[in-house]
Design a protein around this nucleic acid. Structure first.
Length: 721
DNA sequence: CGTTTTTGCCTTTTT
DNA sequence: GGCAAAAACG
């Protein structure tokens, strides 16, 4: 089992006593170390499966780990294994009553959270226009990421946020969650901290149980998760964290790279192992990625090396716009296919979700099979969320959020006025909306059609609840969809998407067959947020965001959209300055190191964003790749706009958008790949206007712009004035 | 109360 | 240019 490991990997596996920090560069076999370590512990009988806690960030990583451990040990093991959140849900369910919840609590998604906050803002007479609910939610989430319950939030600027209302809203929000027997994602960690600190006997139970703790993607833990891990490790001290500070890309979600540095401080006797031998990429790819990330400061510093000798240089392509970029990628893919590369070994990694669109359109015309990973998720579709809300209401009548969601779909003639009446009654009686409605019905408050519809609704729910044990899940859902008239509602609608929705409902019923009971299904829905069709067997190109690509690898990787403003993303730079820029650079590093054999980077001079043409200069990250590792592909953007038969309307729009200046840039780009500019020349740039050349180094030209000041731009984007 | 029209926001990344 | 929420209308 240890045979195929290198020295460092073996050390990480065999250091079973005391805390271990594994700094694992990209492609250095960290998953292998983790799984082998678990197998090693099990086979040497250092612990039983139930005494091992293995935490990952994504469900995908969790599944992969389970599979690989099973493969190594020859049996599937009942470890405590999963994401921080799924383990949190499991532990909290066991002790729900200590936290003022029942074990059947629900886990809210972002939609529910926002609805809750909106309701609170209305109650509190806080203007949701100038202070959007989203802002409150993000402040609250940040607090939760830091392990702060409302009473732990200290004064100062923090409480001044969002017009000084943040803390008050946080308090009410937590109260409302408890009232509807619900938690949000952040609570799954936060409640565990509360549980462990307020009930030492519970902490003792778990701290003693987990003889070994393993943590994957440690660089992405937030403070709350870090505190939780420390509490759990306090007894046996056998905690092994694997991470890479260069791949920390979730600080916007509360992740603290500092947790890596903190680890050595809080566990002073920790064994630190560095994995630096890369088994994934060619030397050119590795060198290019290393050069880029070297521009970041405050790294722990690793030097990746590889034994591989051969390999192609990275390929850089400049293009006119996103359509051309998609066309280019499509052509390259077809060429690769002819060389025998299969589509499933190819990935296109983008900075932002909307970028996939151009590629999808192109692949559809070419007939290239593709799949978008992430994107719209099955359980986020309206019809699925509605159906789930019905089921939630069957499971727990006090779920007001579910009640509100479906009370009027299908239409039951309930509007604002009726809703208001229910709310008022619920609040004064301290009932749930369901209970209040029952009460109002009994009092004969609802007359005529309204009363009939509501009576049927309440009656239906009661009947379904009685039957929920007698029927299996699929049957129950089927019955509900039928009797509620929910499915009929979509069947009667003649919009193009209605048929798809009916299909989705069918798919939902089918998916339910895999679950034992309603509770198990509801937990799955709220915790497993990934796309439904994830079968890796079909031969398709993968399209996803850079974030979603973490942990994956492909023979061929395309990294399009390397433009200032998009990547690094303007917002990251605006909001977090140098820190934001460095995180973007880490994202670039993650993207580049996904490639095994070939890596293409491209940028477009123009891009349509919000239906407006915007031109941009190549990403600074391109300039950070040494020329000896990169090959510039010729052709492309210079002749593209005319020759390639692009949509005439688009061209007109492009010309109009670049206001007056475009006549020059759209048609007059008469250069080959070699530039023949010289110092002192007056030039024109589409974005920065007129300027004079200060210095030339290869294709990088320093220009003193009349309006925009000193800039370094690529020769491809300027023309003689 | 429900339907149609208009506005406004969006596109950073997600458990 | 697309989608959801608000506003206006019937």
């Amino acid at each position: 089992m240890l045979a195929g490991l290198n020295d460092a990997q073996r050390m990480a596996v065999e250091a079973t006593q005391g805390p271990v920090l594994v700094l694992a560069g990209a492609g250095t076999g960290k998953t292998r170390v983790l799984t082998t370590r678990i197998a090693h512990i099990l086979m040497n009988k250092l612990a039983w499966p139930g005494e091992i806690l293995a935490v990952t960030f994504t469900n995908k990583a969790a599944r992969e780990m389970a599979e690989r451990v099973a493969l190594l040990t020859g049996a599937s093991q009942s470890l405590w294994q999963g994401t921080f959140h799924s383990i949190g849900a499991r532990i909290i369910r066991r002790h729900a009553e200590k936290l003022g919840l029942t074990s059947s609590f629900t886990i809210l998604d972002e939609d529910d959270q926002l609805r809750l906050i909106k309701a609170i803002l209305i109650e509190q007479n806080i203007d949701g226009k100038s202070l959007p609910p989203k802002l409150f939610l993000s402040v609250i989430q940040r607090w939760k990421d830091q392990g702060l319950t409302p009473d732990k939030v200290t004064g100062g600027q923090d409480t001044q946020q969002v017009g000084g209302h943040a803390l008050g809203v946080y308090r009410l929000y937590q109260a409302r969650l408890k009232a509807v027997n619900a938690t949000d994602f952040g609570d799954l960690i936060l409640h565990m901290l509360t549980l462990f600190t307020q009930f030492p006997e519970v902490l003792e139970e778990f701290a003693k149980r987990f003889k070994y703790i393993l943590v994957d993607e440690y660089q992405d833990t937030n403070v709350a998760q870090y505190l939780w891990l420390r509490l759990l490790a306090s007894y046996h001290q056998n905690i092994c964290c694997v991470g890479d500070d260069d791949q920390s890309i979730y600080s916007w979600r509360g992740a603290e790279v500092g947790n890596i540095l903190r680890f050595e401080r809080d566990f002073p006797d920790a064994t630190v192992v560095k994995l630096e031998c890369n088994y994934r990429s060619t030397p050119h790819i590795l060198a290019a990625a290393s050069s880029v990330i070297a521009n970041n400061r405050g790294r722990l510093g690793k030097t990746l090396w590889t034994q591989v000798k051969e390999g192609e240089k990275l390929q850089l392509k400049s293009l006119w716009d996103e359509t051309e970029e998609a066309r280019f990628v499509g052509e390259e893919i077809e060429q690769l296919q002819r060389k025998g590369v299969s589509l499933k070994d190819i990935a296109i990694l983008v900075r932002a979700g909307f970028q996939t669109r151009a590629f999808e359109e192109r692949f559809l015309t070419l007939g290239v099979a593709y799949r978008v990973i992430g994107g719209l998720r099955f359980y986020e579709r309206a019809e699925i969320r509605d159906a789930v809300a019905y089921l939630r209401l069957i499971a727990s009548p006090q779920d007001d959020l579910a009640f509100e969601r479906i009370i009027n779909s299908p239409k039951r003639g309930i509007g604002q006025a009726t809703m208001q009446q229910m709310h008022t009654s619920a609040r004064s009686l301290n009932f749930s909306l369901y209970g209040a409605t029952q009460h109002l019905l009994a009092g004969g408050e609802f007359k005529g059609k309204l009363g009939g519809a509501l009576g049927k609704f309440i009656g239906d729910l009661g009947r379904w609840r009685e039957k929920r044990d007698a029927l299996n899940l699929a049957e129950l859902t089927e019955l509900m969809l039928e009797e509620s008239g929910y499915r009929a509602m979509w069947q009667q609608e003649k919009t193009p998407e209605a048929a798809g929705r009916v299909e989705n409902l069918k798919e939902l019923v089918r998916a339910m067959g895999e679950f034992e009971n309603l509770a198990a299904f509801l937990e799955h829905v709220s915790l497993v947020t990934e796309a439904a069709n994830n079968d890796n067997n079909t031969d398709m190109v993968s399209l996803m965001t850079l974030h979603a690509a973490k942990g994956l690898e492909f023979d061929v990787v395309f990294l399009p959209g390397w433009e200032e403003g998009l990547f690094p993303h303007q917002r990251a730079v605006d909001e977090s300055g140098m820190k934001g820029l460095e995180e973007e650079r880490r994202l670039a590093y993650v993207g580049m190191t996904r490639a095994r054999k070939r890596l293409f980077i491209s940028h477009a001079a123009n891009r349509r964003i919000y239906n407006q043409w915007q031109s941009s200069i190549p990403s600074r990250f391109i300039g950070e790749i040494p020329e000896e590792h990169m090959e510039k592909l010729g052709g492309g953007m210079h002749s593209a706009p005319r020759q390639a038969g692009r949509n005439w309307k688009d061209e007109v729009a492009a010309i109009m958008a670049s206001a007056g200046a475009s006549a020059k840039t759209a048609t007059a780009a008469p250069r080959g790949s070699k530039n023949n500019f010289s110092k002192g020349q007056r030039i024109f740039h589409q974005k920065f206007g007129y300027g004079r050349i200060q210095a030339i180094s290869g294709d990088h030209i320093d220009i003193d712009f009349e309006k925009a000041g000193q800039k370094k731009v690529l020769a491809d984007f300027i023309a003689l004035a």
